[in-house]
Amino acid sequence: MDNLPQIVSVLGDGIPETVIATLGGVLLTIVLSFGAGLLLLSPSRTVRGVTRVYVEGFRGTSEVVQLFWIYFVLPVLVGFQLLPLFAGIVVLGLNHGAYGAEIVRGAIRSVPRAQYEGAIALSLSPAQRMRRVIFPQAFVEMLPPFNNLFIQLLKSTAILALITVPEVTRQAREVLIPNYGSDTLLIFGVTFVIYLVLAGLITLGMRLLERVASARLGRRPSRAARQAAKATAGVAS
């Protein structure tokens, strides 16, 4: 227990990297999820096909392979090397964006047909239909699965340790284990707590967003959606 202050401080040094990787990854995930998710609903076969290749390509391979590929192989092909943290964010975003695209697609398709028909009957333009009627309803449905996806992303930041990003997991493995070899239980105990707190913050933020989005629809957040999301966490349906 004597080394607790040092352990906490070394792990603490890794928190900014973990947080930056998570936030950067989440941002890129959101952009790609909505971009690719909407393209998956495009009327054009070609557009859908190309987007499918992206989605299935990233869902079908291992994240570690993607990371190594972008970090070690891409430089050989294009001639410049990405910074480890940046390469990490790109992979986290591309990978989780592929899963997020399915969430967006599924949520938009789950809006009842009658809502489309109602919007057409009110002679709303396609853009208005999406923005005013379909999207706000789909958005509420997306939040619980996105909560899971973001926690998944936070957990994935640990693999950035493999390409030398000094985030929390790497601090534990490369700095603390060699120096405080007898305190392993403490080291990983604190590491678990850090990730738990960060995951808790994500959930807190998403619940808040869920409440706001539901209130704007005049609904209460549904427990059922969250339960369902929990049973399919980790694999986007």
Binding site: T169, L185, T191, Y195, A199
Partner: peptide
């Protein structure tokens, strides 16, 4: 279940690999 679900698999693997031998 909550702890295992919210923390990285890699850290859990390190836990099994480095802590259990102690």
């Amino acid at each position: 279940v909550e702890v295992v679900r919210s923390t990285p698999l890699l850290v859990q693997v390190f836990f099994l690999f480095f802590v259990l031998p102690q």
